[in-house]
Nucleic acid binder design. Sequence first.
DNA 1: GGACGCTATCGTACTTAGTACGATCGAGCA
DNA 2: TGCTCGATCGTACTAAGTACGATAGCGTCC
Lengths: 219, 219
Amino acid sequence: MTPRMEAARRTTLTRERVLDAAVTLADRDGIGALTIRALATELGTKPMTLYHHVAGKDAIIDGVVDRVFAEIDDPPDDLPWREAIRHRCRSARAVLRRHPWAPPLMESRQNPGPATLAHHEAVLACLRRGGLDWQLVAHAYALLDAFVYGFALQEASLPFEGTGEIAGLAEGIIDAFPDGAYPTFVEFTTRHVLQPGYSFGVSFEFGLDLLLDGIDSTR
Amino acid sequence: MTPRMEAARRTTLTRERVLDAAVTLADRDGIGALTIRALATELGTKPMTLYHHVAGKDAIIDGVVDRVFAEIDDPPDDLPWREAIRHRCRSARAVLRRHPWAPPLMESRQNPGPATLAHHEAVLACLRRGGLDWQLVAHAYALLDAFVYGFALQEASLPFEGTGEIAGLAEGIIDAFPDGAYPTFVEFTTRHVLQPGYSFGVSFEFGLDLLLDGIDSTR
DNA sequence: GGACGCTATCGTACTTAGTACGATCGAGCA
DNA sequence: TGCTCGATCGTACTAAGTACGATAGCGTCC
């Protein structure tokens, strides 16, 4: 292959392009499908070529996590702190729904990238701007992020938002129960989960309101 | 090896013993070290032998997750619902600190085992006993578990509870910052995290109180 | 009591994945 | 024209999951 062909085929490989492809691949086929070989194929190259742009698979994961943080909106400066934090948490949830493989990785990596740090900085500054003392900032941030990540973790295991798929899953599980087992669980499912209009996601707004109210009243 | 030697060496291999060893191994060496081969070595046998007692690695993970659920105390029947739920959430946190590899697995599996289902049943029944309607039960359970799992996820990435290790980690990160970068982050760390007596864990009780209060007042 | 078959065990080998090592190849420069 | 350098990639080693089939005690039935 001549260099001209190579150049025409695609712009030169770069760390950024590798990470782009990694996110795309994980979104499309799941984090389990994010292998060095699959990534190379996706980029039209061979496995070992990637090693000239990233240090290894761990570095790819670190980079990908930083990408996800970069997608989350910072709390807007021109909103009162409560509304700013609400905006940020909603944005985080939306991002984590686009990247359902991300939550377990985001909290378990110990090499935060620049976007990760910048985002933490913005959130801390916003809480501080709201008049919270350091102790309360610590509590509030731990609480809010536990909620956001935990909720995302739960949502990631659900088939899809909205309609009958959750119902199908629930029915499948319940049908396998021995008679009379788990009565509250069964009643909860039939009386609530299987009702038309049910949505797991609405609990997010409920929880977010509750947390913000609680933090505010502690201030 | 004669059968007598075999029998003396260890009681016959069984699904339960395989899962026991899997939990032990994950606790000791991390979930990444939980391989079929390592598990076989741990049990003094060979990889393929395990396949007569479990269907494969996925089945081991499912079984291990159910084990973890089994360790979590159900909400005690003889306590008011708030205190019962508090007890259960504290127990869950303690269990997840013993098994820091578990949170990402617990919510992402879709084959709940009997202990998992029994535990959900007990929690739902307790909330119901507290007079919450189905809608609020749904909100409360989603919220409480998001918090518990999310908090556990955060704690899992911390070195250890208590003393100077978190400080060391924080200092390592901060020292690498360019001058003047992330000012709030730096101030938060120096003014709060690095202070003697700091503990991430106390935010758990703060959050749990806040959630229980909020849910109660919505009732 | 001897052959039969069941069940747990395990040796071998195939597949997928991460990645170390070193060859190649084209571009720019002396 | 030949040298050097950076990007690319062929080859191969290691680790891991697991399919296939052989083996070997043990109880059972004629």
